[in-house]
Design a protein around this nucleic acid. Structure first.
Length: 292
DNA sequence: GTCCAGGTAGATC
DNA sequence: GATCTACATGGA
């Protein structure tokens, strides 16, 4: 069913379970399920499945579907890319202003293995359309239902997230049945829009951040926060600085930015943290949740 | 029971 | 433009 555990060559530093949990279930992807029996996470993206765990010796290990299901396994290289372990992110991290910003430095020290997961844009968009005023476990639950009902079967009871073309044909009441509540009409609206404009998302990939953001904001249910999450986690637009309730709280309490408007906080983030603002955002997000 | 959750859109001023 | 509120659902 699964290949033997094998270390992934992505860091010489030891991993803790805590590091892997924050990377896979820290609010970036909602497609990794923890299995207490094996202390491993199963999940993936697109048509790929993997299992990940931290060995007792502190190395990050992966295992893949095998046998007739081998095509469901990502290459080791693709998995490492998905996990955000690229030269590009290493450089962005190095260039963040942690030398002059003790709050950011502390956050990075607390979560040294954290990176931005590089997810398919379609999945990031769908995920964060489901995220409005929901807790992370509920987002995970809603996406699981969407996948099980409308997505392509993979293996081990796992389905792929549904493609937007498929979502466009599903009646609103059926979408509602997955428990995603009022977000169903946002999904339906965006699915219809993308059906009319099939190349819309792929065109966004080549746009600079400001134009890409403007384009995403035209989709129903996509506001500034969902747009920035999609741009950061799906399109690798590193200057995107999503401001949600946690980040707003962080900037108020730790940076003293009381009474700032959302738009002002977004601008502050991009200016203060620079070209890797989105990466900084993820460390601050993890840190604030840890403090609460 | 009440409050809140990785927000957005539409109404109202 | 800036502020106010409805929107579904589940968990604390």
């Amino acid at each position: 069913m699964w290949t033997a555990w094998k270390p992934l060559p992505i860091s010489n530093q030891p991993w803790r379970f805590f590091d892997l949990k924050e990377l896979l279930q820290g609010g970036q992807s909602f497609r990794w399920i923890f299995e207490p029996a094996t202390k491993a996470f199963t999940g993936g993206w697109a048509g790929f499945l993997s299992r990940l765990r931290v060995s007792p010796e502190g190395s990050l290990e992966a295992s893949f579907p095998r046998g007739g299901k081998a095509h469901l396994a990502p290459t080791e290289r693709a998995l490492i890319q998905y996990l955000g372990y690229s030269e590009e992110q290493t450089e962005l991290l190095e260039n963040l202003p942690w030398r002059s910003d003790p709050i950011l430095r502390e956050a990075i020290e607390q979560f040294p293995r954290l990176r931005i997961l590089q997810q398919p844009p379609e999945e990031a968009l769908l995920s964060f359309l489901c995220s409005a005023t929901k807790q992370i476990p509920q987002i995970q639950q809603g996406l699981w239902q969407l996948a099980q009902r409308f997505g392509q079967p993979l293996a081990d009871g796992w389905n792929q997230l549904p493609r937007w073309e498929v979502l466009a044909g599903i009646p609103l009441p059926d979408l509602r049945d997955t428990g995603i509540g009022f977000r169903a009409r946002h999904i339906a609206g965006t699915a219809d829009f993308l059906k009319e404009n099939p190349a819309y998302l792929s065109a966004i990939a080549s746009l600079p951040y400001p134009e890409a953001r403007t384009a995403l904001l035209k989709l129903p249910g996509v506001g500034t926060k969902v747009a920035d999450c999609t741009l950061l986690f799906g399109f690798q637009k590193w200057e995107a600085f999503p401001v949600d309730t946690w980040i707003a709280k962080t900037l108020q309490r730790l940076y003293g930015l009381h009474d700032w408007k959302l738009g002002q906080l977004e601008t502050f983030g991009r200016v203060h943290f620079g070209s890797g603002a989105g990466l900084a955002q993820q460390f601050l997000f993890a840190r604030m949740r840890q403090l609460s």
